[in-house]
Structures are given as structure tokens and as C-alpha cells.
Design a protein around this nucleic acid. Sequence first.
RNA 1: GCGGGUAUGGUGGAAUGGCAGACACGAUGGAUUUAGGAUCCAUUGCGCAAGCGUGCAGGUUCAAGUCCUGUUACCCGCACCA
Length: 805
Amino acid sequence: MDYSRHAEIDKKWQDRWYSQKVFHAEDQSDKPNFFALIEFPYPSGIGLHVGHTRPYTAMDVLARKLRMDGKNVLFPIGWDAFGLPAENFAIKHKIHPSEAMSRNVANFRKQAMALGYSFDWDREVNTTDPSFYRWTQWIFIQLFKRGLAYKKKMSVNWCTSCLCVKANEEVVDGTCEICGAPVIRKEKEQWMLRITDYADKLIEGLDRVDFPARVKTQQINWIGRSTGAELDFSTTAGDKLTVFTTRPDTVFGVTYMVISPEHPLIDKWAGRLANFDEVAAYRRAAALKSDFERSELAKEKTGVRLDGVAAVNPATGGEIPIFVSDYVLMSYGTGAIMAVPAHDTRDYDFAKAFGLPIIEVVAGGNVEEAAFTDCETGVMVNSGMLNGLSVEEAKKKIVEWMTEKGLGKQKVNYKLRDWIFARQRYWGEPIPVVWCDRCGKYVPVPEDQLPVTLPEVQNYEPTTTGESPLSKVEEWVNTTCPVCGGPARRETDTMPQWAGSSWYYLRYTDPKNDKALASPEALARWTPVDWYNGGMEHTTLHLLYSRFWHKFLYDIGVVPTDEPYKKRTSHGMILGEDGEKMSKSRGNGVDPDQVIAEYGADTLRLYIMFIGDFEKTARWNSAAVRGCQRFIDRVCGLYDRMIPGDAVRPEHELGVNRTVRKVGADIMEMKFNTAIAALMTLVNEFCDGGDINRAEMKILLKLLAPFAPHICEELWEGFGEGLIAQASWPAYDESKTVEDSVTVAVQINGKLRAAVRMPRDCENADMIAAAKADPKIAAALEGVSIVREIAVRNKIVNFVVRPGK
RNA sequence: GCGGGUAUGGUGGAAUGGCAGACACGAUGGAUUUAGGAUCCAUUGCGCAAGCGUGCAGGUUCAAGUCCUGUUACCCGCACCA
């Protein structure tokens, strides 16, 4: 037997598994349920990437192991087929997106099957299927009805190549996450989702889920909750100027104020400003910059003083100048700040550049040199009633005082912005609302009329005007208002990439339901997801968005839990052989199809699991793939030499029991590389012994089956006991995982001097005696005095000695 | 700038504070072979040795890759967030 006929063997077992629905998740089962989830792929034109095989194989190993443990496992797959990559692919190849998608999906499906993944193919979902996006639209309407979806004119991120709006999360260093083109600011009316309403819940829920610490911190930082105060400053123009600050304690140190170039008061004050032209010019210059440029050019602080309006410090009553500067962002807080140069580095830089006074109000630093920003140690000075207090006490006291006077209040701010939930593109879920002139408002499409299907069009390329291509489909756009029956126009923007993926996992529990997104029973049975593995790059995108939707669905009583995922893990990236990120332009990509063709699916699966720590970045090494092929060949060789025997032979009990324990534990901790190493060690043990018996072989195959299921089925078939995929995971005997005698290291002054064999669990005194009896140790202990004798059971003996007697 | 992570042979990587380098790749030598490939056997951290070795400098400990302090390099997030 060997695995050189891998193409034939792989196919044989894949056909059997899939035609017999071996991996079907039972809706009625006495077994405990387990929902294992991978991030469903976008079926791009390139096909399944070798990067996909790492998380998918990992979860497949886990799913297969859990089935053998007696769990009723739901391990589903679907296609995230809406969105820009799909549409751009279609445009490039001049075919319709739906056609491109069905081709790509067919290819992905074939590839996933060629890897032998144990998906339940009866639960496949596709976000572009009207029976699926009907429910995406339904969720949108629920959000709309509760005021969480709204339309707003605002400055948005506009990708100059995709020709559509991007969410903040999709803009990386001022460029588009997808195409890399520059992103500029543009005023547009946009559909928004009020994710900020869930900011606190999204933070708080993290306490109750098992996510990696780095995922939690990244989400918390992204949400960026900060507690401070809103304070009102009066101005000589009569208007009050409200600022947000986390340091209300420093209000006596405010020597000037800054408002953002977009601040509305500038227009209001236009007539009073002697230098309005200069201010306007500064504004225009700022508007031309993207947010990225603004922060890049931030080294030098720039700004213009408003000539004609000043503010009044509510604490001191002193008059202070107001500047306009682009270091203050309209999108955070109130778009205006109180500047305390002595205790804020940015204000310090600005004050230095403009020669403004710097007043120390927290003692402890040297404000001649730099801003003193420490909140822990400082003591208040130059601050009237606050003098002598700590920063914390001062914060509390000043906010109370301001609140009493009606000049301010405690306030929490977030970096998180509402989610821009519309794209001016064709290939997405239509937003299910219509604009009715007579009603004068947006009206949701009645739920029984869902889905609003995407019309077939000839030209789906983006327009240059910023309008969705759907706006040109008159017969689709023109409709009637569901409320008044009058003429109405459909919303022509579509939902972003992230819509379907925000809830797809729920659909797996009941994928064919046409009454609800899933039945309450199915949701109760399967959710929350027990284990969700996915990429770190989705931490502040998909993972955050889907937690938001889930929490909303919980609040309206649709889902039974407030968090969607019990446990989240993340895999590291696979780099090319040259240590660089795999990319078409570098030509360092690895095609899984080719690896399978050459080595077979099991070799690829084993290698990708053996490559290194699952969480860390790993580099592809084609030579090392051979090692895994050799390992499979060695197992086949052992099989050919198999001898009878219905029990593990005594000389292999230790190895077998230890390996069963280790492989099982390692799989559950995602330490796949060491699990495989343990299997290799066991195989080497049998090879060195010359043979293996039937009982031993059966255990070995069961342990290997989750990793290399095809060849294990092929070998298992000879035992006539059904499928190994349905066999039970072997048990081990703890008492047989330890040897009767142990090798104890003997050290003198911490340096290894001998290794002594002795019975297990010796008393310390016996260990020391045995160590002293060793000739090398006895010789070394001649002529020295022993200061201390340390013995650790079954491990080590250490003599601390001093020269002489 | 802030936050998080990583650093171990020629390479990928193992090590509940207790024999550093498991397992694999590669390399070297040998067997087999017409040859190459494949396979099998042996060796493989450095050093002739005593010894020395886990980025660097300290510390705690009988004992440190592992814990503590400082430091360097690289990677990832966030970034004028008031």
C-alpha cells in the first residue's frame, strides 16, 4: 500500500463521504452539539489560496476530531460573493458578476472538496442568493424601523478608483483597502448604521467571550472610549463654544482655543472676522487634504488666529484667543478644543510655534522643556480652588463645579464612528427602501415584499458621477410607495461587502427557512458559535460588525444570546518561499491545486498543519513538504508489515498512551505542529522496532485521521469497520503514560555531571543516595564540601558544593 | 508617539523554572542502483579540548530560553482622538 495513487485514493473517499453525507449535522441528535466556524471565502477569480488552507484545515482537523469524540458537529461553508472584488473581477473579464460568481463558486467548491474538508454541503449558503439576501434586507429594515439605519449628509471617504464610498475601517493609510488607490473626502448623503449606540455593549461583551487578548485590545482601542467632560466657553461674539476634554482639571491652564477648519461657527462669525479671507484660504487648503495628508504633515503645526472673536475662560474669566487649525478634527468630540500647552504635547507644539503663553497648572514636570502629561503624580497649582489637589480629585471637583454653574457636564466620547452602509455600485444587496415624494420620507419595503431583487442590467460598471449604476434602470427605480400608493423611487445604493457576512453564520443553522432568517429552535440548538477561527485583519471589520448585528438581533428578540461567538482564534499568515507576502506580482504564490496534484491532499494538509505555530506567520518551504510525504509513506510501509495482535504490546504501551494523550490535547489547543511531531515520533518508534500490530495500527490511524483522512480511510478499510471518519477517538490509560524507572539529571553547582537511572517516585533521600553512588558524581564530590543537596522528584538532583573540606 | 507581539542550530521550529535544540527540512558519509531519482543506515549547535551556547546588559534562584529590570532590532495594530 502506498499513497502514490493519491489522486485515486482522495477521489474515492471524497465521493464516499459526500455522497453518503457523512458530515451532515443532525438537527435532532442525542449527541452534544458543536458549531465550528471558518470565515467563508469570497470566491475571487484566483481560486482558493494556499493561505485559506491553513485556517480551513485547522478547523477541519478540529471538526473531525470532535466528531470522533462523539459530538454532533456543525461545520458549514458558504460564499461571501457580493462586493467589490467580485464586481471588479467581473468587469475585468467582461462577464456579468452573477455569472463570474457562479463560475468561481464552482471552482472553490471543487477545491474545498479536493482537500477533503468535512463540510456539511447541505447547508451551503451564498450571500448573493435572493433567498439569503432577503434576510439581510430584513435585518436592515429592522434597523431602519428602530432608527439605527439613517441617511445623513456627511463628509465621506471616496475611493478614486472604486468610485464609491468606503467605511473608515476600509481606508488604510489614506488609500483603499481593496484597490490601493487614494481615498479623498467628499460630501455625500449616505446610509449609516448607528454602531456607536452599541459601543459600550461591544466593549462590555468582550469580558464574557474567549477571544485572544490581542483581538480584545484591538477592538477596545478601535472603539476608543474616553471619559471626560464637555465644557462651554463663552465668546465675545455671544455664541458659546463647546469643547470636549479628558483633562477638565487643567482648565485654569487654558491659554487659547482651537476650532477645526470645518467648524460651523466660522461661517457664522464671517462678518466679525477682520481676517476672514485668510481664514477662508486656510480652510480651503485644509479641505483639499485627505485625513491622511493632514496627519502626515502634522509635524509642523499650522493655523490662523481669528481676528475679531475671542473666548472667555470660565474658570479665570480671562479673555483668550481662538485659532483655526487642522490639528483639530471636526469628526471627533465637538470639533473644538481648549488648549492647555503646559499639559498637552500638541498644544505645546502649537503654542511654541505661535508664541502663546504656557501656564503650568499641574506641578511635577518642567514646562520650560516639554508638556507634562502625567496624571498620576502631579499636584494642582495656579488653579484657584483646585490648588493642592491630585489630578483625579481636581477632575471630579471642577466637573461638579461646572455642572452646577450650567457650564459643562461629564461626557463619554468614542473614536468609533457610525458605519457608512452604502456603496454606489451594482453588485450588492439593494437597500430595501423607497423615497416617496408625497410622504416626504424614506419608506421601507414591506417585509412580505422582500427580497428586493437586484435587476439584471446590461451595464453594471460604476458611474463617474457617484450615482449607483442602478439609478439608470428606470423601470426598476420607479415604483409605488407602500404607504400612500403614490409614485416613489427605489434607493439605488447597495449594501457594502460586510452586510451578508454580518449574520451568515446564523443562516447555517437553518439555511432553507423561508419564514425567518432561522427558526428559534435552530438558533437555540446551535448558537452561539462554539469556535470561530479567522484572520486578524477582520478584527475591526467583520468581527466587530457581526457582533454589532448580533447584539441588535438579540435586543429585538431574534437570537437567544447577546454574543455570536463563544471562542475566537486567529491563524498566522503563510508567506511565500522568499519570506514575502504571496502576491501575483511577486510570482511567489503557491497554488494548492498543484500541490494536491503532485503530493495529494493529505500531504498538503499535514504540511500546512506542521509548518509551525498556528498563530504565527509561517514561510512556505516546498522542500519540507517532502517530509510529510515521507511520513505518510512510512505509515503505509508499516501497514504492509502489520502483524496480528489485538492489544498494544507492552513495549509500545508507553509510546501509544502518551501519543494518544498528546495528540488529543494538542488538537484542542491548536498545537497541530507538535501533535504531528508526536505522531512522527510514534511512527519512528514502530519503524525502529521493525513492525506494528493490528491494534497498534488502528490507534495510529485514528490519531492521524483528522490530519490525513484519505489515506487513513484507505488503510482503515482493510479492517472492515466502516469509515474511520465515524470511528471513535481512542482512549488512553494515564497510568501507562509514565515509565517505571526514570532518568534523573545530576548536577553539581547547577552543571550537568551525570544522568542516573532510578525507579520512579523515589524519596528525595534515595535520589540523593543514588546520585552519590554514580562513579562520576562520587569522584566529583571528592575533596569538596557539600553545602546543600536539592532533589526534585523524577527530575533532578543538584549538589551545591564549595572547594575544600 | 501610543498599544501589542517576536527574537533559540545552516532552515522551519520543540521545551508545566529542572538534561536546550523534540519533530522535520537541509547537509555530509555509506549501502542499494547502469545512471539519476527514490529508499535504507550513520553523523549533524559551536569548539581540538577544558568548555561555550536561546538578540544584548543586569537581577532573582540551588537551577533561567522560561520570572524581574533595562536595552536593541524586527513585525503588527492605532495614530494630531483633545
